[in-house]
Design a binder for these strands. Structure first.
Length: 187
DNA sequence: CTCTGGATTGAC
DNA sequence: TCAATCCAGAGG
């Protein structure tokens, strides 16, 4: 079912573009589309899994299709979809979403922002969907957070470029986003 | 135990 | 351009 997620991160990352997150939040249904991702494999010096399995990265080494959530800069959460075979630490960072349903709730969680700033960044996306450490390890086939894949996007709909905010392996083109999508974090 | 530097964001 | 604010991971 979610076997498509058991491959290398740089293959799964573009595959996740266009996929939907269905979130049950405060008794309401919120839906958002993935528009930007980044791949992180175990062999990648920029990946949290690079130095082996640790308490924090444990989920990255587990089965694909689960959510890896980490806390950073003392105030932000970022979420990843775990991929790769079990025992191999790989995941795809969700960098930006496009609201599809329940925009009001996402906006409320984001301090009533109504522009693209509601979900155009990894920590913003988590805040909009109410994702924190409690969701770490969550099975994405289940509510309250479900991942629904869509057919792969045609190549001309995908832009591949270098990742953002990293210092190691900064030249690797492992960032992917939907062409011309306004919710992409940065062009 | 101490120290360093973030897969960021929003304000200045 | 820079501070906020916590903690994982490395080294002693």
């Amino acid at each position: 079912m979610m076997n498509e997620l058991s491959g290398p991160a740089e293959v799964v990352a573009p595959r996740l573009l266009g996929a939907l997150f269905v979130r049950e939040l405060d008794g309401q249904r919120v839906v958002a589309r993935i528009v930007e991702t980044e791949a992180y494999n175990q062999t990648d010096a920029a990946s949290h899994s690079y130095r082996g399995r640790t308490p924090r990265t444990d989920v990255m080494f587990g089965p694909s299709g689960h959510l890896y959530v980490y806390f950073t800069y003392g105030m932000h959460y970022c979420m990843n979809v775990v991929c790769g075979p079990e025992g191999y630490g790989a995941a795809v960072l969700i960098r930006a979403l496009e609201p599809v349903e329940g925009v009001e709730l996402m906006s409320a969680r984001r301090g009533e922002r109504t522009d693209v700033g509601v979900t155009n960044g990894p920590a913003k996306a988590c805040q909009a969907l109410g994702i924190d450490r409690a969701m770490n390890g969550h099975d994405l086939t289940q509510l309250p957070l479900q991942l629904l894949l869509n057919p792969p996007l045609p190549p001309d709909q995908i832009v591949q470029t270098t990742r953002i905010g990293i210092t190691r392996a900064a030249d690797q083109p492992w960032r992917f986003y939907i062409t011309d999508n306004p919710y992409v974090s940065r062009v």
